[in-house]
Design a protein around this nucleic acid. Structure first.
Lengths: 349, 349
DNA sequence: CTGTTAGCGCTTTCAC
DNA sequence: GTGAAAGCGCTAACAG
């Protein structure tokens, strides 16, 4: 072993040991100077260590730190689909907040498959993340037979924090979105501007989020005299194509008296808009459309989409703060939503 | 220390040690049974270990494994903005491929700030990721004075692999996108359907990707007789709002003879569409618009947007395969793009 | 304030 | 085939 003491181009990163040797101090002193320790270090030594670290291009091995400290700086985020604007906006919020807290985010996609989700939670647990954030609702009846819940509980028992976004299936901290109340307000406002007969396109089989939105919408109609026949509730995939297909189905079977179609989220609503147009109808004029979420693109479709705004990035940010035990975040209550009327639902009469 | 031998609700995860004890075998045997070792383990022991692991709800500590093995199962991904569909689609591809390779992805956002990018690379290096993927072009003239390049080189020297997506600034493996050729084809096709006078809205100050697209577009026009005045090249932020602002500027100064506006990416084009409409003009009719990327939403705006398709998810996937040394990926050459004509550029005359 | 040393949880020689 | 033991890179008592 030729020890030339110079930063040669080795093919393994410099270790703290190398830095200590280079600086002529002990491991402990090197460690203390490089990372915020409570202990004070002689300014002279400190400088020498920092200088040596720079020379050797030292970068602390986070895995080793994690093992030694017994705690990581990692946050795990699970979403249904990264390319979906709903999730990517939430993710952006989580990543931004994590960055502020000098935490690192690892991300995985469940592709809306509960089995996969369980599998991912298991894998990710190996990282010993400080926090695990699960976004995206899953079926209300758990097809994995409670295995996910158990896994998450085990994770919390071992010191982790799980936060759910808009899915109150378990007893974990949750960022609650006013899905029901928001949809109810939307229904009221729509009736207020003259709509009476509605149809709904929603996600398949009792997804919690979707179900809440539909229930809220229904309640709003009930209170104000709007009509929604059970037959006019279409189920489809909770995606753009689902919205497209649902709308086409609705058109094919005949819109009848329906004046406005409420899609349980914006990506579906956008798909519905295209289906309407592809059927030779004029959205907004022949049939009005409303969505939920206020994803960025709904301002740019035509007609611009009426929706319920939910502050997606903020939700991501809050989820993390909640997990980190932020007092404020814990006391803020449900995330406020807000109805945004746009040309896709022009006032009627 | 009460050692009752039962999986009590401790508040620290079970270790391999615990499993070994529970199974009555040595640490080594437990390790060998749980992870694919070359060594053979007596079937009887193996079963006992697996059973014990299950009972204790054991999950291997990835950090510890990383330290012991000297290698991680992590991939780091840097993008400009997670909520931007261009990047989130690429990210989805990376995550999907990583999942296939049983790798974990950590993600960070540079927010288009070179300083931040450098900072993030430094931090992420601490993870000792096997691979680092950088997406999103940065200014051609490096404001960090080559520091990023040095950092990345140091990372590769220490055994990592960096892959750049569509940014050939350094000598690293790169997923090359036919930005120039794609834009050139687009120009040719547009001239082919009757357009003659063009304007361009592009990203600020020499972003590589933007510059290539504009250059290609220009070349296509030059070859076919289309006209693009230097005055009609507008610079704005490489975002939806940038596109909106750029278009508004163009309209305010007077479109003159301009028949078609080419935006250097789809999000800008979508913003431009809205600006046109907000100015009381009809996109497609009064002025045609074309973009680049073929992000999902461009099918749903009105009129649907002419663009150059680039297979975003595939790019993410390829980036990772390239990093992992996949022969095929290395030999596939540039990522093919394809012109997609849609109603935002109706045939003229 | 500094250095020695015993871990952290896991892998991997190396003997048996 | 199995186990004891020596690390991996780093931190945190613990003495000096």
């Amino acid at each position: 072993m030729t020890d030339d003491g110079i930063a040669t181009s080795r093919n393994t990163p410099a270790t703290l040991h190398d830095v200590a040797r280079e600086a002529g101090v002990s491991l402990a002193t090197a460690s203390r100077s490089l990372n915020g320790s409570t202990r004070k270090v002689n300014e002279e030594y400190r400088k020498r260590v920092l200088e040596a670290a720079r020379r050797l291009d030292y970068s602390p091995n986070l895995s080793a730190q994690a093992v030694a400290r017994g705690t990581t700086t990692t946050v795990a985020l699970l979403v249904a689909d990264i390319a979906d604007p709903y999730f990517s906006s939430i993710a952006a919020g989580v990543v931004a907040e994590a960055d502020r807290e000098r935490l690192i985010v690892t991300m995985a996609a469940t592709e809306r498959d509960p089995e996969r989700e369980l599998e991912l939670v298991r894998t990710l647990r190996g990282q010993r993340p400080r926090v695990m954030i699960l976004a995206g609702s899953r079926p209300m009846s758990d097809p994995t037979g409670g295995a996910l819940g158990e896994e998450l509980e085990a994770y919390e028992r071992s010191g982790g924090r799980v936060v759910l976004i808009s899915r109150n299936e378990f007893d974990f901290r949750t960022v609650i979105v006013e899905n029901s109340a928001g949809a109810e307000s939307l229904a009221r406002e729509l009736v207020g501007i003259g709509y009476r007969r509605f149809a709904v396109i929603t996600g398949g089989e009792g997804l919690r989020t979707a179900a809440d939105r539909v229930a809220g919408f229904r309640a709003g109609l009930a209170a104000t005299g709007g009509t929604l026949d059970d037959d006019d509730i279409i189920r489809a995939a909770f995606t753009r194509d689902g919205g497209y297909d649902g709308m086409r189905e609705l058109i094919e079977r005949g819109l009848g008296e329906v004046e406005l179609v409420f899609a349980a989220n914006d990506v579906m609503a956008v798909g519905a808009l295209s289906a309407i147009r592809d059927a030779g109808l004029e959205p907004g004029t022949d049939v009005a459309v409303a969505g939920f979420d206020d994803i960025p693109t709904v301002r740019d479709v035509t007609p611009a989409l009426t929706t319920v705004r939910v502050p997606l990035e903020e939700i991501g940010c809050r989820a993390l703060r909640l997990a980190l035990g932020d007092e404020e975040a814990a006391n803020e209550g449900a995330v406020r939503t807000e109805v945004v009327l746009r040309p896709s639902t022009p006032p009627r009469s």
